[in-house]
Design a protein around this nucleic acid. Sequence first.
DNA 1: GAGGCCATGTAAACTGTTACATGATTTG
DNA 2: CAAATCATGTAACAGTTTACATGGCCTC
Lengths: 181, 181
Amino acid sequence: MLEYIIIGMALNDPLTGYDIKKYIENGISVFYKASFGSLYPALKKLTEKGYLTMTEQQQGNRQKKFYQATEEGKIIFDEWLALPVDLNDTTESRLVKIYFFDNLSSETRDRQLREYELNNVNYLRKLELLEKQFDEMPNKDDFYFKLSTLYYGIRIIQENIEWCKHLQEHKPLKDFIGRKI
Amino acid sequence: MLEYIIIGMALNDPLTGYDIKKYIENGISVFYKASFGSLYPALKKLTEKGYLTMTEQQQGNRQKKFYQATEEGKIIFDEWLALPVDLNDTTESRLVKIYFFDNLSSETRDRQLREYELNNVNYLRKLELLEKQFDEMPNKDDFYFKLSTLYYGIRIIQENIEWCKHLQEHKPLKDFIGRKI
DNA sequence: GAGGCCATGTAAACTGTTACATGATTTG
DNA sequence: CAAATCATGTAACAGTTTACATGGCCTC
């Protein structure tokens, strides 16, 4: 995950590891946190693999390393981006991919969103089936909180579907929040 | 995380590793997946630490190992359960903890839910501030999808708050879903 | 000149996955 | 009797965090 995030951040301008950390913090810190301990080794690895170029630059008494995505880096980034958003991944890693959807062609993006919506609809059906099973049980109150996580899940999947529709129609984002009754 | 889940599952009846896997699948597979490769070593480790007891039993030609939480195991499980639900954790691991909330005393549970709600409210304020900043920028359409993740986040936090209120009032779970306009 | 930010990195530990390996029991 | 499920485990690898270590630059 982190490797793709790094390439995605260094797609255009050459950036230092420290810059990339900043970009991650300002852009996706809500759902993804990167530590230097994982960032710097990843930069080294990606450069060795040929997905990033590194150019050193002296600034005063300080040696900085600037990284930028190579053509190959862009290719594997695009491949990753075009891979379906997997409902088995955590909410957070799914959001990471959608964060980069501006980079996608509108055709691929629409395909992705349609597929994600469909997967959510199918998953919702599965959860609703589960709900029906539990609903028939007696002494439901003994596991009210256990059950509550299922209902939370259903609610979130419903939200996902609404969100997908919203994004496909390119509706104003403000309309997605604050529509409480 | 897995260690607490295991203890939480083996709180009452003695269970085999295989049983625990089943419990995890039937109860929390929606947001947590455990593999045997992590489960069995964890059982061994927890037994060594004294949080589980293991009793072997011959059944036909098969040697089964039954695990059950010790008093010490129950204590550290309760400690973990009483620790605040951390918004920095993934959605999924937060749900794991709430799944076990039936085990909590109603006082601790209410404290937990109140605190979680408050943290969500504060977090919502932070995100709304962020939203305001981005809203003032020109060419917002160039990062429509980047921004969409922020709006998704706000929406989910709003849902979290609704959910917390719902659970505190012990309202019927069915009322939490299907309240679309 | 002290404190905070800029900048790069390493080492140990932790947590987990995937694939492999083995064999018993049950059910169609 | 074959296939599915029950049952337990190991080994290699992957990805990450936390803590440590070092030093330059900037601003009050």
